[in-house]
Computed example of a mutant assay.
Amino acid sequence: MQPRVDHPPPLPENVLSLSLMQRAWNGVGVDACEYRCAGRVLHHMGYETHARLNVVLEEVGSPCEPRLRENLPCAVDHKPRHMFVAPAGLELWGYSADARFVKDATLLFDLATLRERLAAELDADAIATPRMRFADDRLWTLVRLLADAVNDPDPSTQLYGDGLTAAIVARLFAATPESTAVVQGLAAWQLRRVVEYLDAHLPGRVELARLAELAGLSQSHFSRAFKASTGMAPYRWQLDARIRRAQALLVDTQASLEEVAERTGFADAVHFGRTFRRLVGATPAAWRRDRKS
């Protein structure tokens, strides 16, 4: 997906500042924005070249409102955690009578890439039909997690975001609902091939599309089957494998924490230490000391 912001447009009236972070996963571009405002805001929302989902993650002040026309109020009442879906070509405006702070996420869908990567048929009616100001708690949570990951440089964030975007697209546009039948795990050859690939590429980024291809499955089917086989989502398995490699380095070498962090794909020793403690229950230094004493 091509970059979407070459030269940021002038800020709308009463918008004091705008923070924008962008990333793409799996044929889905994600724009996570924070606006600081002081009064009435009315602005053209853009993004018409794509089908898109916009989710309001936080709003302080008067509620935000999507509009089909600048001066035509939205016909749908405000709901907490509201969002809208708009097809490509549909112009929209955002309005608030008295905004103070707004955080939202806009997901832009490259439909051709999604059909290819997810190996799934998408519901043409769902893609072409605007849905204004609706609420879906599961979808809201998935988008919030995705927005929080936009600026995370950790290699496992690739698989994490791939999985989230696949789940979001399935919930919005799947032509047929996902089966509620008991999920079968991967065949032994499938699991072996995927694990060997993950091990060979540690600690670098790996795409969910590639793992699903190795197993000969769609991304959503692969993710469910992998979790059924291992008890973990693919991104969590990769993160745990990096921590296991770090534990081996801590026990078998004299490498500093900074060196261990670098060799296992963490941005720095602080990030490594925080993740290690969350997953293992002790700091790397304490864990090493206990096993070498």
Rank of each mutant, 00 (worst) to 15 (best):
M1W: 03
Q2T: 10
P3V: 04
V5L: 15
D6F: 11
P8A: 14
P9C: 03
P10E: 06
S17M: 04
R23V: 00
W25M: 00
V28F: 05
V41T: 08
G46Q: 03
Y47K: 14
V60I: 13
G61I: 03
P63I: 04
C64H: 08
R67D: 07
L68Y: 05
L72W: 06
P73E: 06
A75Y: 06
A86S: 10
A88S: 15
L90A: 07
G94S: 03
S96C: 10
A99V: 00
F101I: 10
T106E: 00
T106Q: 05
L108F: 06
D110S: 12
E116A: 10
A119W: 07
A120T: 13
L139F: 05
T141H: 09
V143D: 06
D148K: 10
D148T: 03
P155K: 07
Q158N: 05
Q158F: 04
L159H: 08
L159M: 06
Y160K: 12
G163C: 09
G163W: 09
A166M: 07
I168R: 04
A170N: 12
A170M: 11
R171Y: 02
L172R: 10
L186C: 13
Q190G: 15
V194N: 01
Y197C: 08
A200E: 07
A200Y: 01
R205M: 07
L211Y: 02
E213P: 01
G216D: 04
G216H: 12
L217Q: 13
Q219N: 12
S220C: 05
S220V: 13
H221S: 13
H221N: 10
A228G: 05
T230H: 13
M232C: 02
M232G: 00
Y235I: 01
R236E: 15
W237H: 15
Q238M: 15
L239K: 14
R244Y: 14
R245G: 08
A246Q: 03
A248F: 06
L249D: 04
L249M: 12
D252E: 15
T253V: 01
E258M: 00
V260L: 02
A261S: 05
F266C: 04
A267S: 13
D268W: 02
A269L: 00
F272M: 04
G273H: 03
A282Y: 12
T283D: 04
P284R: 01
A285T: 03
S293G: 07
